[in-house]
Amino acid sequence: MKEILIISGKGGTGKTSVTSSIAALCENKIMADADVDAADLYLVLQPSIIETHEFYGSKKAIIDSEKCTHCRLCMQACRFDAINNFQVDPILCEGCGVCYHICPRNAVSMKDNLSGHWYISDTPYGTLVHAKLGTAEENSGKLVAEVLRSAKEMAEQQEAPYIIIDGPPGIGCPVISALSDADMVLIVTEPTASSLHDLQRLLELTANFKVDVSVCINKYDLSEEQSRNIEYFCYDQGIPVIGKIPFDKNVINAIAHGIPPVKYGGPAALAIKDIWEIMKNKIDSE
């Protein structure tokens, strides 16, 4: 089984448009949305939820005011400034438990915190594992790991050779979590100075992983000059640019209708088909 991860560094470059299209083109696969803070893949895949699971990502401290003697030991030991007036601010509390261990009166308890949900769904294109992180919650990396663990289980059950993963933006813990078992990475970039900067940082991160990396340039014709800069940069780095997708209003219309752009047609759809052909040949020959 091969994990194919689509990421971008910079947000909003078109990861979900590309991922949903590849998911629609690829036969026999499980799909996973690893962008758990702002999960959008479900908007184009029209899932019906089969299973809902709770995700407990962290613990939060609670002080029992009856038992508390205001000795301040917890306040002095907390490095996150999360205890004020002998009460815990759940937004600042990281769940480390130092206050719990240090309290001489056992006034602090640690409560499991419901940080979100994850789902297994049926879609017209196959099984999708996705998640929703709770409001203002942490530990999205752990939830990503949970989503991918379940996707692997589903792939084994269904004997699906591929898992197609819509990744999170950035280079932080959710991305690292999504990269941990990936076999192939497609980076979706766009021809802007910001996107090139972010691509450089993302490649610094992926260099730490044993994974095949390629790049595609979305909306490349919005700035052919910046597009060339990205191609030169990738050439220098030895990273193949395997496709260039034109700016195409059909993509916007496809998303507005809730269908993967490749099913809607147009020049962008054709470019994505070519990209998938290259990826498929590459991954099958490995």
Binding site: D37, A38, L133, A136, E137, P169
Partner: peptide
């Protein structure tokens, strides 16, 4: 701010 809604954004 960064994108998203989780701890870095908070």
């Amino acid at each position: 701010a960064p994108p998203g809604t989780s701890c870095p954004v908070v």
